[in-house]
Nucleic acid binder design. Structure first.
Lengths: 231, 231
DNA sequence: GGCGTGTACTTTGGATCCAATAAGAAAATA
DNA sequence: TATTTTCTTATTGGATCCAAAGTACACGCC
């Protein structure tokens, strides 16, 4: 807590929760008082958040909260799509280690276990989120490339760009179950391609996989306050 | 100059020139004195540079200069490759405006003019760099997506990831000329694909185009001090 | 002579102070 | 009454100060 990175994290949260509305200027002093710290850590955090893409610099008068359109969200998912695709291709082509392969297969088993009941409950959703996060993280880290990992991490700071954004719609659990079944199938095929060293296929599958929330039409109606979204 | 962004720019330059050696800790006070400013703007700049990937945070003791391996440089180019590929695909699929098309064709003409002599001189190289930069910038901006543009911009902060890094080898001007001829051909084909709305083809061409410095074997022997590079 | 503890120093993180500047409000003039 | 000019105020950028933490060195003890 003595570290200013917590200020970054707290601000990230507050922004994506809409506490600071999009497109509105955000003052250092006000934030500092609300967080109970001085201006200094806030100023530092602003620079970080700016680079993460959550704040934009206004001509010569501080920062304002970035507003995202539906288009932006789609783009962020597309960016993740090509970057994770790249990671999968690299991993397949450079060869996957037995350790990583074992870990990925464990993810497949764990994922299968979640879906075994034929329906979803709350714990299932949480478990799947963990397994899914582990799966994606494993592939990226296995490429051993900090450059790719960083590019992905930065993109994932944008709200709903991350593969962790499950967007589970508790009103349509049936449909959500179908989505996870498809996701699980994707995972199986991706591991298959990785094991077989099929770079292009791994990339293609991973790219398609990233679109799952778009394909399943659960992209909008988000908690995050989009700028000009009506529906 | 009164803006601290100049500190960021100056530091970026100093780092990529090797004034601060890779993998070595970088102290706020020392930098502040060298730049003739106080610690505050340096501290702010460090946060920006960290997000840009030029500095890495050391456990709880400030920052050190990031070191890049050959592998990292290749990865950065691959990242640019897939991102510019994405931009090209989007642009082709969403349809390219007549204005942008005209501007791109102007780039093609200008590029052709540079190569018309059959050989390169110093001015030619500079001109081509400008035209090339304009060409790539046009395509990215035409997608109207800040998210993609930002992802690219961040990646381009890594040394030699940017398409502006021509890496012209004045000792082998003949080979460099051949490289630019190929690049020009790529540009022509890319515009063709964009005009025809062929998204996949545009993406594929753009991705290949990004690899030109790798294909032409002029990737290493760089000014930037790589960590463990012998050749 | 080696190892451990303690102290001094270096360096970062946070708070406050001061100056520059831009925005906003009020007043004066046309 | 509208417009322009000036003054006040809010807010950022830079500098300095203080506290906390970590490192290194030295001294002492085993």
């Amino acid at each position: 807590m003595s570290d200013n990175s917590s200020v970054v994290a707290r601000l990230r949260k507050l922004i994506s929760e809409g506490h600071y509305p999009p497109d509105e200027r955000i003052a250092e002093l006000q934030v500092a008082e609300e967080l109970g710290v001085s201006r200094t850590p806030v100023r530092l955090a602003f620079r970080t958040l700016e680079q993460e893409g959550l704040l934009v610099r206004v001509k010569s008068r501080g920062f304002k909260v970035r507003h995202f359109t539906e288009q932006d969200i789609v783009c962020a998912i597309e960016v993740r799509s090509v970057l994770e695709g790249l990671a999968a291709r690299r991993l397949a082509e450079q060869g996957i280690s037995p350790q990583v392969l074992t870990a990925l297969e464990q993810c497949l088993d764990d994922g299968q276990a979640v879906l075994a009941n034929g329906h979803l409950n709350h714990d299932d959703v949480a478990t799947w989120a963990r397994v899914n996060s582990r799966f994606h993280g494993l592939i990226v880290r296995a490429t051993q490339s900090d450059v790719i990992a960083d590019a992905l991490a930065r993109n994932n700071h944008l709200p709903f760009a991350s593969s962790d954004s499950l967007l589970v719609d508790s009103d349509h659990l049936e449909r959500e179950y179908q989505k996870l079944v498809v996701a699980q199938q994707h995972h199986v095929l991706i591991v298959q391609a990785l094991r077989g060293g099929e770079g292009s296929r791994a990339e293609m599958l991973m790219r398609e996989h990233a679109y799952i929330n778009i394909r399943y039409g659960r992209l909008f109606g988000l908690a995050y306050p989009l700028a000009d979204v009506s529906r």
